[in-house]
Design a protein around this nucleic acid. Structure first.
Lengths: 241, 241
DNA sequence: TGTACATCAGTGAACGCGCGTTCACTGATGTAC
DNA sequence: TGTACATCAGTGAACGCGCGTTCACTGATGTAC
């Protein structure tokens, strides 16, 4: 017992060192990413800065792509956590407040970590194929959005149908929405799901335009502009207008 | 006279060959871009395929970045032209029809040229600094959108103010919008400009999500989904609801 | 129209670089008895 | 508690690669008289 605990502790020590060095490699890689972008991320450069020989990194990550995958997963978790934390600061029934808080949190994260934002929401990394382990972390932030929709529908605080007449959906889209509803959005009608996705994609469109420079020279007060736009999108989301 | 015309023709011949080879280099580069992405675009590989030695390319483009710039400018022109053509197929007063046609044209172009879309609307190319010559071509597609707003306002076909009360803008944003209005959107009030930018960023958010795989596994009927979303955004644009 | 000269496209070799990955190895740390 | 063995982190050299860019050069094409 004591021995097994002891050995557990000591092997835990080795494991802890390993975890620390893994974290250090990721931290350095993350900084390189922030400075140069994903294409320029090089195992050798990272190793150099960590103070190892390049081949030593292979004890921690079997390839460059695996290191990139780790960074991608971390980035999804980071933005997901930012959104969750922001969401939790508002009363559950304050849908508009939750939506605005989530939007602002995602934006704040994106502005502090533009290369990580680009990594996950920008162009796919050339030649990189995302493994399935990224799916879970990737959906984390979307679940925050869906939670707002679910709560809103449960309390009747979201206009359930669009006032507009032209909302007959293609059958296949209806099937997609039904599947989504079954898996992750119980009780949320099609019209609300569609509005949710409308404002959701709009949020990332806005962020991409801001971060990738497409509003350069047109908008200078990015804060005010963003705020005005998400207040508008909150209306669209909640009352459908 | 005859000589000068003659010499004009012959020097024109040389110039034409030069233009043709320049075009060929760009065409090959564009294909490499489509296959591998911008980071993998290599002067040497392009030269190899064109059938020149790599140094010969420097007669046409002073550096790799200049080649990339040329591709970026071409891409902006291509999407701009697609939008203009689509816009012109509808009667000028048919605002919704114009908006939908433009959205569909941009999407069709993006789906046919995903890497070029990524080049201009995805993450900025690492280490690449866009020169000022890209600004004109870049704004071409936006001008199509603005034309719809201008025409709509001129004919009273666009709801000029938002029904919602919470539309007091930060002063700085008002200044940005005023500047934009002076330069490129005469007669378009703040509320309409904001709505225009809302649906505009939403369009690109939607396209980025579709093309970069963020809807993978959730939406299968991309056509139907896109169509439903832009019909909704047309409503937001035109009637503000 | 014919010739002398200038312009320009394309060649081929070279420079210097950094990359991802493999491999046989040395020591240090942990494990089992 | 002490020893023999196994595990594992890190080393250093090497492989083979492709890249952007420069440079002195050869011919061909165009220009001026």
């Amino acid at each position: 017992m004591t021995t097994s605990v002891g050995s557990g502790v000591t092997s835990g020590a080795r494991a802890r060192v390993r975890a620390e060095i893994t974290a250090e490699i990721k931290a350095v890689a993350r900084r390189h990413l922030a400075e140069q972008g994903s294409a320029a991320l090089s195992l050798r450069a990272v190793a150099r800065e960590v103070g190892m020989v390049s081949s030593a990194v292979y004890r921690y990550f079997p390839s460059r792509d695996d290191l990139l995958t780790a960074l991608i997963i971390d980035a999804y978790h980071a933005v997901g956590e930012a959104a969750e934390t922001a969401d939790a600061t508002r009363r559950r029934r304050d849908l508009a407040g939750r939506w605005l808080a989530v939007c602002r949190a995602v934006r704040a994260w994106a502005r502090s970590n533009p290369q990580e934002y680009a990594l996950i929401y920008g162009s796919p990394v050339p030649g990189y194929r995302a493994p399935t382990d990224t799916i879970g972390p990737a959906s984390r932030v979307s679940l925050v959005m869906l939670a707002i929709l679910i709560d809103g529908c449960a309390h009747g605080a979201l206009e359930p149908s669009d006032g507009a007449p032209a909302s007959h959906l293609a059958h296949a889209v209806g099937a997609d929405l039904a599947a989504l509803r079954d898996v992750a959005a119980p009780g949320v009608p099609d019209a609300v799901l569609m509005r949710g996705m409308l404002v959701w994609t709009q949020l990332f469109g806005l962020l991409s335009f801001e971060l990738f420079g497409h509003l350069h020279g047109v908008i200078h007060d990015y804060d005010g502009f963003f705020d005005a736009q998400i207040r508008r999108s909150a209306q669209v989301l909640i009352s459908g207008s």
